[in-house]
Structure formats: C-alpha cells, structure tokens
Write a protein that binds this DNA or RNA. Structure first.
Lengths: 160, 160
DNA sequence: GCCTTATTGAGACATGGTATCAATAAGGAT
DNA sequence: ATCCTTATTGATACCATGTCTCAATAAGGC
C-alpha cells in the first residue's frame, strides 16, 4: 500500500502534473495505431493527475468511481500498453514493484519520499555521467539503467 | 577492484562467489539469535554459489535436489530472512523483481548482462557521488538508493 | 538425554496478474 | 449518417507467486 496516500498535504508540489498533458498521451496512442477509447481517457487522466505512484489495482479502483463498469483486465492491459509506449514507468521500491508514475519526456531520475510517498523527478545528467564512467571501468556495454532514490523530501523535512 | 572479469573464461567469471563465505552467513544467523538448521545451510549454499540471480522458486527447486523434503514456505521464509539480514539483495529488473543475489560487504552497484543473465558488482563510489550531488541540488534527504545497470557484459561482447 | 520452543513441511489460502471469449464500440468506407 | 470490420472491452475462469496455519520435528540450553 502506498504510504501517506491518505495524509493531507498542503500542495502536491513534487509530481510534475503540470508538465504532463493527457491529450499528448491520447495522441501517442492514436499514432501507434491504437483506437482511442473512453477507458483509455479515464486511465490516462488518472495516471497523469495522481500525485502518487499508482498500481493497476489502485487505478482500477479510482476508474470505477467515474466509470463503474470498467473491467479489471482492461486496466491491466492498459497499464501494460502505457508502460510499453513509455508513457508511464514502473517504480521499483519499498512499495513493491507494481506502482507506476508518468514518464517525463527527458530521462529523469526518480526520488520517492518515504514519509509522504510522493515522487519527484531529478535531473539525470549525473546518472548519464555515472553510466559512462562505469562503462569505461567495467568493460561492459551498458544499454539501460534503473535508478531510484529514497529519503525524506524537502517538504517533509520542513514539516517534521 | 572486484570484477574478476577474466577474459579468457567464458563462464562463471562475473559472480564473486569466491568472496562469499557461507560459514559467515551461518554465523550471522546465529548471532541474530536464529537457530542454525540444515535447510538454512542448504539454501545459503545455493545462493552463495549461484552464478545467476535466483528466485525463491528456483532456489526451492535446487534445494530439493539434495534435500527432497524441503518445503516451499520454508524457502520463502528463508529468503525473507536472508534479505532482512542483508545477506542477499533483490534484483529489480528485466526478469521481474523476485530474484536475489548475494550481498557484498561493501555497497556495490549491480550490473546485469541481458545476454547471459549473470550479475556483476561494480564499485559504488560514482553512486555515492551522485547521491551527494542530487541531495544538494534537490533539497531532499536521500537515505537509500537502488541502482541497476543492464547491457552486454565484456565476455558476451567478445564472444558475439 | 530431556525439555522447551523455534523451525519446518504440507497444504489451504490470498493476492496479483493473464487468458478466453462473447459483446461492444471505434472509425474508415459508403 | 449508417454500415462493416475488427480492435477493444468486461466478465469470469484461470494461473503464478507468495503467505498463513498448525501439527510434527529438531536445535540447543540444561
């Protein structure tokens, strides 16, 4: 379960919802040859608006509030599709590995606050440097990476 | 530096089994107040010797070869215990998130070869630097991290 | 060797995710 | 706008992975 999901916070200042446009996601689906349906709109909206990483199960629960007939399998299929299209990405961590956050256009490092549960996106230049360095010293060819940082976000430190 | 990459060998040069001593693991269990049992010895041996990340299910399968009556739940419990004691760590990645590798005493970065599946341990200084840098620029307090690198290992590149 | 109790094994159970298939609804063609 | 084709959906059965229960076993202190 997501920690802090029921806590009341001043503002969601970590999740970059402003930077995500659901309409762009629909365009992406359309351009990939998929039909644009109402379930998709519903789910895209849910993921794009959420302040917290969401699991498929949680997304289903939320979806049924506005669209009661939504099927469970459909949500799982949709989450899969969104992940494959790179629109959302899996959070590997303390809450298990089945929660997702929207992807930002640029490659970014994920930070998860262990106190309020929210995600933040950090500039990934340091990661790119690290990769290049490790490639050099190890001799391995690095084609992909997965980094997550955990701790107390600036807000939570302040309110502690 | 570990690596232990010996370019003359085609197999088994990545996992640092030499550096892991099953006896130490038993000592760790003992010192944590747990009883030392034969299942534990069996499983510790399996994890310490494996060249590849193993899931609980895989470890169970292997365990039954030498100890047919081994119970499934026992293996899951044991894997849990080993993870909690920090003796093995979870690999988050392409094979799902339920495989484990032995932990090395020092904090190290994991590299997984997408071609042969083996794990390698890289020096983690770059990661520590990255964390410090990100802490500074983000204002978050970072208490834990999770990094994994994927690609083609030196061996596989050579043999391609 | 005895006694206490942590650990085990077997199997029932829970959870998270997938496969099947008839019904529905996108969206191009008319 | 209406029809037609077929991707998508919803319901449900299913599977895989992991957990719980509880009687039987075996560590290890005495």
């Amino acid at each position: 379960m997501i920690r802090g999901i029921n806590k009341k916070h001043k503002v969601g200042c970590l999740m970059p919802s402003k930077r995500i446009n659901p309409a762009d996601w629909l365009t992406a689906l359309d351009e990939s040859g998929f039909r644009v349906t109402t379930v998709q709109e519903t789910l895209i909206d849910i993921f794009a608006r959420s302040e917290y990483p969401l699991s498929a199960e949680q997304a289903w629960e939320i979806a049924r509030q506005s669209r009661p007939k939504t099927g469970r399998a459909t949500v799982y299929r949709m989450v899969d599709k969104l992940e494959n299209l790179g629109l959302i990405r899996r959070v590997h961590g303390y809450q298990g590995c089945s929660h997702f956050v929207p992807t930002l256009p640029e490659l970014m490092m994920l930070f998860i606050c262990l106190s309020c549960g929210r995600a933040d996106y950090l500039d990934s230049q340091p990661l790119e440097d690290l990769i290049q360095h490790s490639e050099h010293t190890s001799g391995h060819h690095i084609t992909d990476s997965r980094l997550q940082l955990f701790g107390d976000c600036a807000d939570c430190q302040e309110n502690a």
